[in-house]
Nucleic acid binder design. Structure first.
Length: 432
RNA sequence: UCCUCAGUAGCUCAAUGGCAGAGCAUCCGGCUGUUAACCGGAGGGUUGUAGGUUCGAAUCCUACCUGAGGAGCCA
């Protein structure tokens, strides 16, 4: 048997006899010639099998190969201007590993619900593979960004004893006999403790929100990366956030051009994602929205339409800082210059993809934090450990969280975040 | 939770009160350069469920089920 090669390496084997191990993606046929599109997880390539090369018996057998049959194929690699990847293979033989009958995802169109019910098969498609490879690169770039800047990965728990922020709806789970635990909605509070120990930290893991949101921007289970830095202020965290996003986008452009092309993603907008990003205050944002004729009032949070209108005024992500403290979480530090504002920041992605980052400077004063916990009717005993961080050497600190799926959806130019994760969890979707 | 829309062949859809159809998929036949290949033929239906109006309902009405988009909330 000729040496086994991967399709992604095929250019290095021009003119050689090789073996591919993969699956039949699609087949077209003429009377005396078959065109098999074979995929092996690293790429797709066309294998041409003619009656003259294979002989009548083998050729007839190839006529009945069906979609997604696993097989090994031998043949000679040949550069061909007609081929999509520049190369194709003149087939000399094949062996079926395991047949596939009535594969449900045909080359024609299907509805979202149908495809989502078969998500475990849908991910075999070229488009879904492209999205998942971009996701991989985004995550890889995020880790590389923090690791190369002296951050320590310190993961935070997924089971938590109570509502961290007191705002979002949490998923309760029974924790042994008579205790209720909740799936984390953010690692942030633990991250603050980790930053007091390790200086610059990040956590990266799944996050859960039980809100019954039905929009293209929401999953009930999503992945979030959260850095936290001791001795950092709001400006430091805005710097860090824009550098992270610039770095991630640059890495995808550099290494995933083929995937973006396959997704028909225009890259002009992504090429423009260079620091510094525009920074506007909440006050200015309100002014801009009123100027655009939207019915906004000072004091409220922004809705999806507001975010889209704001972000469309810039050619790169925009940082909106200093929201009214009343609409933000209890742990946000007030602006000393205007205590009704919180030292917080949201980053809005272009093209209506919404908020991809939320963060800010944390409340580091013991008395004020205790006051906020009381004001929000939170149980003080559950936050004693968190108050300890202000009892024993409190320092200014700041951080943020970035939602991976929204970033991937934006970079890929997708309609919905549900395609950015292998098995999305949605309000009405828990299978497969 | 609320608003809007949708549910017809395995899939994607048409039929707007009067014989339930097409393309793809499957099977059979044809074709040596296809790219969601193409050409010819065949099989394939409790029109989401239950009730109602009507001579007659996929079509109109009511309830329910399932899904999608949006609102609120959030990354």
């Amino acid at each position: 048997m000729p040496p086994v090669v991967y399709i992604e390496d095929i250019a290095r084997h021009d003119g050689e006899e090789v073996t591919l191990r993969g699956w039949l993606h699609n087949r077209r046929s003429s009377g005396k010639i078959h065109f098999l599109t074979v995929r092996d997880g690293t790429g797709f390539i066309q294998v041409v099998m003619s009656k003259a090369d294979l002989g009548d018996e083998r050729f007839a057998a190839a006529d009945h190969l069906s979609q997604e049959t696993s097989l090994t194929v031998t043949g000679r690699v040949r550069a061909d201007a007609r081929a999509k990847g520049g190369f194709e293979i003149t087939g000399t033989g094949f062996t079926v590993v395991s047949a596939s009958h009535d594969y449900p995802i045909t080359p024609k169109e299907h509805g979202v619900d149908y495809l989502m019910d078969r998500r475990h098969l849908w991910i075999r498609s070229q488009r879904q593979q492209a999205v998942l490879r971009v996701r991989h690169t985004v995550i890889d770039a995020v880790r590389e960004f923090f690791n190369s800047r002296g951050f320590t990965l310190a993961d935070t728990p997924i089971f938590t004893p109570s509502a961290c922020e007191g705002t979002s709806t949490l998923f309760p789970v029974q924790y042994f006999d008579d205790t209720t635990a909740y799936l984390t909605q953010s690692g942030q509070l633990y991250n603050e403790a980790n930053a007091m120990a390790l200086g610059k930290v990040y956590c990266f893991g799944p996050t859960f929100r039980a809100e019954k949101s039905k929009t293209r921007r929401h999953l009930t289970e999503f992945w979030m990366v959260e850095p936290e830095v001791a001795y950092a202020d709001l400006d430091d965290t805005m710097d860090l956030a824009e550098q992270l996003v610039e770095s991630v986008v640059a890495r995808v452009l550099e290494t995933r051009g083929a995937e973006l092309t396959h997704l028909e993603r225009k890259t002009d907008g992504l090429e423009a994602v260079r620091t510094p990003f525009p920074r506007i205050s909440y006050d200015e944002a309100i002014g801009r929205l009123k100027g655009a004729g939207l019915p906004v009032e000072w004091g409220g949070d922004f809705g999806g339409t507001d975010e889209t209108v704001l972000s469309s005024q810039f050619d790169r992500p925009v940082l909106v800082h200093r929201y009214p403290a009343a609409v933000k979480a209890f742990y946000m530090k007030p602006d000393p210059a205007r205590p009704d504002l919180a030292l917080c920041v949201d980053m809005l992605a272009p093209e209506g993809y919404g908020e991809i980052i939320g963060g800010g400077q944390r409340l580091d004063d013991y008395d004020l934090l205790l006051q906020r916990i009381t004001d929000h009717d939170l149980p003080q005993e559950a936050f004693e450990w968190y108050l300890d961080l202000r009892r024993y050497g409190s320092v200014p600190h700041a951080g943020f969280g970035m939602g991976i799926e929204r970033v991937v959806a934006w970079i890929c130019g997708l309609e919905h975040v549900r395609e950015t994760i292998p098995y999305p969890r949605l309000l009405h979707r828990l299978y497969p």
